[in-house]
Amino acid sequence: MSDEDRRPGEPPAEGLTVGRTAGLVGVSVKTLHHWDAIGLVRPGGRTRAGYRVYGDDDVARLHRVLVYREIGLPLAAIGRLLDDPEVDAREHLRRQRGQLAGRISRLERMVGAVDRMLLESKPGIRLTPEEQVEIFGADWEPARTEEAEERWGGTAQWAQYAERAAAMDREDWEGVAAAVEALSADLAAAYRAGVAPGSGAADALAERHRAQISTYFDCTYAMQVCIGRTFVTDPGYVAHYDAVAPGLGGWLYEVIAANAGAHGVDPESAAWE
């Protein structure tokens, strides 16, 4: 009964109605009626008109019931626990806490197993983010793969990459990382040595670069040119190559463009095909 439901001249109830109590503790009115019927928690107060209401002690008992129910005790056991003066409630809660901690540990292991299953069933790199950083270096950002999927996920090249990456294990990726590092070092050395784009040495490096991309998908000369353009337009790539050797990205694009031109591709009009 709410204050608005009181009879004219009746003082406010010294307690809470069933509806208000249900809203306070987060259960249904039907649940409270059931607990009342089985003697688990009974409203101990009454208004002058005879309406039963829940007092502070009743609400406190309800909260204890909710705690015990949350940790899996049946209602009958909860009633005995609350009503038996010989029961040490704190000791019982400590035991329940230990059991809950064990359950949480088991659930965490199950979550980890499910995560591994999801990782293994998803096309693409079958490495955890931690393994990716360990293999590709501290500056590697695992989110790059997700960003790439958002951008290229609908293309044939991405489908090819996903299929190939899913078949690679940690040892394969370690080999890829080593090849990337070796090519980066050789590109920087050639750039510092003044190797001219279009020369035999530069063309060999361009072919190594295209072969490296082809680890993931079949990369044509035109595709390589499109990728090379990002080395001078994308701030992330510019910063990456500048960190190896200032200006390396621009020189690498010229090397790629010259080699593509030698194979009949116009770098100015090259398109993703």
Rank of each mutant, 00 (worst) to 15 (best):
M117P: 02
V180I: 13
G98L: 15
A156V: 08
E174L: 04
P123W: 08
K122R: 14
A193V: 09
R164D: 05
L183M: 08
P123A: 13
I104A: 15
A138T: 11
L100W: 08
D139Q: 11
A101P: 06
E181K: 09
A113N: 14
P129Y: 11
M168K: 00
I125K: 05
D139M: 10
Y191D: 10
R164E: 04
E147P: 00
D169P: 01
D186A: 15
R164F: 01
L118A: 12
R144P: 00
G137P: 03
Q160T: 08
A182C: 09
R106V: 13
R151W: 05
A189H: 06
Y161F: 13
E150W: 03
V111F: 09
P142R: 01
G102C: 13
D139A: 14
E141P: 01
P142L: 05
G194S: 06
E146A: 11
V114C: 08
A143M: 11
P123Y: 09
G175H: 02
E130D: 12
A148H: 07
W140L: 11
G154E: 05
R126K: 10
R106T: 14
E163P: 00
A159G: 13
K122L: 12
E147K: 00
V114Y: 06
M117F: 07
R103F: 08
R170G: 05
A190T: 07
R151C: 02
P142C: 08
W173T: 07
G98P: 11
G98R: 15
E171P: 00
L187R: 10
V133E: 07
S184Y: 00
D172W: 04
M110E: 15
A165M: 07
A165Q: 02
M117R: 13
G137Y: 00
V176A: 06
R151Y: 02
A156K: 05
G124N: 11
D169E: 02
V111A: 13
R103A: 14
M168S: 04
